[in-house]
Design a protein around this nucleic acid. Sequence first.
DNA 1: CTCCCGCCTTGACAGCTATCAATGACCGTT
DNA 2: AACGGTCATTGATAGCTGTCAAGGCGGGAG
Lengths: 217, 217
Amino acid sequence: MGQTVVQEGETPDFVGCVLSGLLRMQKTLADGRHHIVGLLVEGDIFGRVFGGATEFAIEVATDAEFCAFPRGEFEELLMRSPDLDRAVMLNTLNELDRARDWMIILSNQKITGRIAGFLLLMVTRFSTIDHIVKARDGGIEIRIPIGRQDLAHLLGTRPESISRALHALQDDSAIRIIEPNLIGVLDLSALAREAGEDEVDGIRSVRELLKVARLDR
Amino acid sequence: MGQTVVQEGETPDFVGCVLSGLLRMQKTLADGRHHIVGLLVEGDIFGRVFGGATEFAIEVATDAEFCAFPRGEFEELLMRSPDLDRAVMLNTLNELDRARDWMIILSNQKITGRIAGFLLLMVTRFSTIDHIVKARDGGIEIRIPIGRQDLAHLLGTRPESISRALHALQDDSAIRIIEPNLIGVLDLSALAREAGEDEVDGIRSVRELLKVARLDR
DNA sequence: CTCCCGCCTTGACAGCTATCAATGACCGTT
DNA sequence: AACGGTCATTGATAGCTGTCAAGGCGGGAG
């Protein structure tokens, strides 16, 4: 927990792939604060494929497993397997879109909007990770895999504001705080409205997810 | 000016490469506001290489030229030319880092800090585009290629706050507002301090840039 | 079992920003 | 030259957030 996998400015000699658990990608600023720029879950690839130093450190957020390939071999593998190459490219493009989604979320001036966007992103992006997003009869339950401090760093604010905003969303009956890190989503539309996002497509896909989850049981 | 090149949600049938001018990548929200998530300058590639719809619209910010390759041919070209494939991958990875830099900037809670980070990013990233960043005897001059409205959308705030923050930085003798869109940088360290970033490396490279620019003349 | 420590939460206050409104500068048009 | 439009700026006020401080809760060590 909290161990460093890749240090800032380092050029790692391997390409990693997360198998389970959660890693966080962050940058430490001059004043000691560290800002989180992304979370890595199972299936995510980290470490730059071709040269160049990583500008961001990677640390373990929860118990996690990952595998590492020597970078040279991985690059050769990419050369020989167009399919793998294409998959890595698609993965990178998806991460790029995700990073831009983060930008939209961070552009929201009210904290409640940022948290609403964060929760929606969790639901839409991590819907396949069942220990994070669970579909229940009452709606969806999200287990936030990081603490208030990290969440604040992620959303560009402070733990106190996170707490207040979550309880404000609860007062609006948009969510329910089951445990500090276990959030029940009561009203997706309200969240989307709060986030200011046109998340209609996202919500539709979530509805599909819920249907599938119910059929599974 | 303001024309749409690629629409949101569309799957463009070409891959574009900016030759000159400036394009902006943005997303329109449900309430009509549009948030800018990136600027494209010469050499930047846009349009997804492999399938998938673009989540962001691309519009012309200034007079611009770009070339377009049919997507199918481009993908075949990638298959046949490992060098090009590698270059595109590197380009994408760089954009990813840039997007994460944006996240850091947007995480800054004070507007002056966000603008300081923006200016530093302009200097470090667009230092080769001489109609945007110019080295002069007094320091560096940055021509901001977008208006206050767009700048506000980019930094997640409002035009009024942009104006106030710029003039605050001027009062601190960190910058000089030569024209509304032409900013002279007087004190890089002050900007870095304001941004809270450990931009020492960045500043060093800027110093190199200044030296080179002076030798050029 | 008790203590200690970290985390989450809540309250009070200062500081900053969003918002509304109004003014002035610049540009293209008439 | 006069007009209308957009854009940048400035002021006043309300609202929200950062900050500091304190209290409550749970888990681990002794």
